[in-house]
Structure formats: C-alpha cells, structure tokens
Design a protein around this nucleic acid. Structure first.
Length: 174
DNA sequence: CGAGTTTGACCCGCGC
DNA sequence: GCGCGGGTCAAACTCG
C-alpha cells in the first residue's frame, strides 16, 4: 500500500472524524508503522517486519503465506505472496472501537482466537471489485484500549469516500 | 433477496 | 513425520 498517498486521503486525516466519532472521544494515532516493502530487501523483509511488529507489543505475528493453489502454480504463487507481504502496514491505535472507517468497504471473512491473546483476531477483505487487500484487527493483549490494525496489499481502486469527497462542491465544508 | 456476519472445518507452513 | 497454530473457506444464518 502506498501509505503516503493514503495519509493525504481526507478520510485518514486525524483532524477529520467520521460521523460516529465524537471529537471528544479518546482517539489518537498513538503509534503506527510503515512497513512498505521498498524499505526492505526481499530476503530480510519478513524478519525485519517481524521484529518491527514485535515492537508493537508482540501481539502481531507474521506467519507464512498460505496458498490453496494447484501445485503447478505453487512456485510463482509463493513468490507473489512474498512480494505481496512486503506491502504491509500496521497501526496501533488508541480507540474504543475496533473497526475504524477508513473509507473502504470491508467484508469480514474470519475470526480467530489466537494463542497468547485473550482477544479474537478479525480478518477483513476489501469488498471492492477485484481488490485483494486484507485487513487484520485485534486488540492489544497488553493494553486493551489499543487496537492493532494490519493492512496487507494495496488497493487497486480509490476509496469510495474519496470519490464522494471529490464530487462535493468546494464550499461543502463551510 | 442480496449483502454481510458467524463459526467450524480445513489447509498449509513451521518447529521439533 | 507429526502436531500446532495462524489464515482462509464456505455453509448457514442474520439483517435491512
């Protein structure tokens, strides 16, 4: 994910709160990591990511990519998965709510209670057509007021929110 | 009725 | 080779 572009996205601007978030509500971007693959060499990427994510409190572990593709495609698929893994961004956010509205439409496809964490981990996929971005959300096991959100992959479309925002008249916010 | 959620089962990578 | 654990699938269910 090209996060530098995302961060300029109005819906991720910290000063702009989604409708349901009362500005008084405690919500701060306390910590985030940019784990874009460009930073890492391929061979060391997973290790670097892992050590960084452990720095988040150890609740986020990197596991091997899984593939259910036929054996014939296995080699290239595995490589693609590895490359895909490099596009990973992890947030640690102090928030009451777990699922933050980032403008994209997410579809939940799994929930898992993981070892060493009393909180379930939720798995989401971007429901945009052909977009295979995944999102993983779990509460920090050490401090339940923090939510750890991990994005994987990059969107191949604009945020619906951005489209909506761009279509608004210039004085809509005044 | 379509879209989204839940949840148990399954798959696969990894460590021993 | 085997067991464990994380990630994903998919059928059943819920909701608007």
């Amino acid at each position: 994910m090209d996060f530098s572009r995302e961060s300029s996205n109005p819906n991720l601007n910290i000063t702009f709160y989604p409708d349901y978030l009362d500005p008084v509500t405690e919500f701060e971007l306390s910590d985030y990591l940019m784990l874009d693959g460009g930073v890492f060499e391929e061979d060391s990427s997973s290790q670097s990511i892992e050590s960084l994510e452990k720095g988040l409190g150890g609740a986020n572990e990197v596991s091997g990519a899984t593939s259910k593709t036929p054996i014939i495609k296995c080699k290239t698929e595995t490589r693609e998965k590895k490359l895909e893994q490099r596009h990973r961004v992890a947030f640690r956010t102090k928030s009451e709510i777990e699922v933050m509205d980032d403008g994209y439409k997410w579809r939940k496809y799994g929930k898992k209670y993981v070892k060493n964490s009393p909180n379930p981990r939720n798995y989401y996929k971007c429901s945009g057509g052909g977009c295979n971005v995944k999102k993983r959300i779990e509460r920090d096991r050490d401090d339940h007021s923090f939510v750890i959100t991990t994005y994987e992959g990059s969107h191949n479309h604009d945020s619906p929110f951005t489209v909506y925002y761009n279509q608004m008249p210039p004085n809509a916010w005044t």
